[in-house]
Structure formats: structure tokens, C-alpha cells
Design a protein around this nucleic acid. Structure first.
Ligand SMILES: [Zn+2]
Ligand SMILES: [Zn+2]
Ligand SMILES: [Zn+2]
Ligand SMILES: [Zn+2]
Lengths: 166, 166
DNA sequence: AATGTTACGTTATATTATAACAACATCCCA
DNA sequence: TGGGATGTTGTTATAATATAACGTAACATT
């Protein structure tokens, strides 16, 4: 498990999201090429749709978008792409929402904690060593071998808090 | 948010589970009486079925058991009982499993982290102050107001580890 | 008893995800 | 270059989880 140098911020309301998208796709291309993974047209497009914003998106939403684009798509189409993207660590599944969101550091086997705004729907991916070590410590005490962590915190982000004083 | 004095252990393989059940039901009765909540026959039975063991159980499993007992039950029947029990903090929902498990300290508004064995299916409820404070600290840094936490760690428990050397 | 409220029954449907198999594309080596 | 192995996508059907909507029954309060 590699540890990232920095935890992330919540996506700012006014950030230049186009660079998020292009950056994510470039990273994905490079990573897949390097690993011999096949980022097909379909998978690339699904990843692009997921990166349309920082809000986790449902499988059937993605499916509908593909259909509108004229592609013949049924549920397995999208779920297979999602499986590939998850296995390649290009996206994460947000269990509490049954939704999928782009990963900030693709290909890296990293822990991830998510802060998800219940108002604007945006999700911020964190990598907090303190949380990880606390879990590891509990696991050690229990004699428990950790396989998967699901750490998702729902609430209201700073931006929405300041703009809900109606 | 009250903090519990002790974190729990994984349910031991040979513990006297009958006392777990009777204790849980007694606590539930007392708590509901005190709070003026109506622990009806149905709700009580659902809670009892959930406490049959320490393995989170799915809504449709519970539904099937109710049906076998001769009760007229459709999905809303069970989901309404589950909602009541969750709102009363008598059970927790395990998001990563779509399943429900009895709560160790009913009625208390407490944080909860779950360690879930992928082999035997048992779940252990924790209340680790370090995890909580780490999350609170991140939230503060983000200006994020925490509403709900979903912290679920899947893996292999000590007991299953020792017995899987086949 | 009349009334308001809560809980439950019932039917239908929404939402999320997978099974199974066929068709097609890509890769690798003989 | 051909031809089988492997991987990807299309297609149909269905599983698994959850909720909407509405009526009826039980309970509580007066
Ligand atoms: Zn962005
Ligand atoms: Zn927000
Ligand atoms: Zn027990
Ligand atoms: Zn186990």
C-alpha cells in the first residue's frame, strides 16, 4: 500500500474542471499503455462520462448517456466497463450511493476515504494516514486481516453550507 | 455523540449467544418503553430474527423467515420494521452488504465501525475514538459538516484464519 | 363513540446488478 | 498468413434490493 503525499481538497466551485478531465484521461491512457491494459473506445468513453464532474454517477445514468449517443448498450455493457475501470483503479465505487467516481491517482493501490456532500453531490477523495493506521491497529488487535475498506462520510460541504442561508 | 468506554471484540466462536439474544431484546424493550416507542410484535420479531446470530442478514432473508412463520409479509412489511429499528438505533445497516445487524448499545447515538469476516460472515461493531477524531479533523479542515459515516472493513477474522489451513 | 394518528396489508413498480450465451475483435504463434 | 486462443462486446433474460401509492386496521386521545 503506497501512501500519497497529500490529502486532497474538496473540488472548488470555480476550479477549471476541463483540466481535471483531460488530465484524468491522459493519465488513464498512459497507465493502461504501460500496464498492457486495453482502454477500449467504450471504456474510455465511460471513464470520460464519469469524469464529467466530481459527483458519483450511477450505472444506469451512464447507460442512458451511452444510449443517447447511439451506442447499443445494455446493463452488462456498462457494468463490464465499470469492473474494468475499478480493477484498473481508474475509478472508485461509492458503496453508500451505488455510484461511481473518478480516481485521483489511477493505478496506485491506495486507501481511499470519501467525503460526499449531500447537497451538491460532490465527492472528495482523501488518503488520511491516521484513519488508515487506526484501522490497521484495530485489525491487529482483533487478529483480523483487512481486505477491503469502505469509508464514506456524508454531510454538507463548506461551499453548500455558505450558500444555503436562504 | 456519546463515546463508549470499550471497543468490542469479535464474537467468539464459543460464546453463549442465547444471552446475546435475550439481553438485546430486554434492552430493546426497556429502551422503547422509556422512549415511548412502540416495539410491536412484528418489530420485536424482526429484531429477534436479526439477532439470531452476529451475521448481517438481508431484508429478503428476513422476509422469507416471516413468511415461513405464517405471517403475511411483503417487502414493505420488512423494510418498515427495519426503518423503525434503525431509527431507534436497535440495528445497523451494513451498506457494503445490503444487510442488517443488531446493535450492541441500543438507543445510544454512537459512531460505529464494522469489521466483517468474508469467510464466516460475522460482524464486529467497534467504536474507535481515534478513527472518529481523524475523520472529525479532516472534516474540520474541509469545513465539512458530518452527517453520516459508513466505515466497514471486510477481511478474514482470526478464527477463520486459523481454521482455513486445510 | 368520534377523531386523529400510527402501523400494517397489498399491489405494483423502481433501482441496481448478474447469468448465460452468441458474435465479433484482437493477439500470438506456427 | 492462417487459425486457434483469448478478450471484448452484444443480447436476452432474470436476480436482488428497495420504494410508491393507497387502503385498512389498530391504537390513542378526547
Ligand atoms: Zn474537476
Ligand atoms: Zn456541497
Ligand atoms: Zn452472540
Ligand atoms: Zn470469520
Amino acid at each position: 500500500m503506497r501512501r500519497l503525499k497529500h490529502t486532497k481538497q474538496f473540488p472548488a466551485a470555480d476550479h477549471d474542471h476541463k483540466t481535471c478531465i483531460t488530465h484524468a484521461l491522459q493519465e488513464a491512457e498512459a497507465y493502461c499503455k504501460q500496464q498492457g491494459l486495453r482502454l477500449t473506445e467504450l471504456r474510455r468513453r465511460v471513464l470520460e462520462l464519469i469524469w464529467a464532474n466530481h459527483q458519483p454517477v450511477g450505472a444506469y445514468d451512464l447507460l442512458e448517456q451511452l444510449t443517447r449517443e447511439g451506442r447499443k448498450a445494455a446493463p452488462p455493457t456498462i457494468y463490464r466497463s465499470l469492473d474494468f475501470l475499478m480493477q484498473s483503479s481508474l475509478i472508485h465505487r461509492i458503496t453508500s450511493l451505488n455510484a461511481y467516481v473518478g480516481c485521483n491517482h489511477p493505478g496506485l493501490d491506495h486507501a481511499a476515504q470519501f467525503f460526499i456532500c449531500e447537497d451538491c453531490g460532490q465527492a472528495a477523495e482523501m488518503d488520511d494516514a491516521k484513519i488508515e493506521s487506526a484501522i490497521a491497529k484495530d485489525a491487529k488487535r482483533l487478529g483480523f486481516t483487512v481486505e477491503k475498506r469502505t469509508i464514506e462520510v456524508a454531510g454538507i460541504c463548506a461551499h453548500c453550507k455558505h450558500h444555503s442561508k436562504t
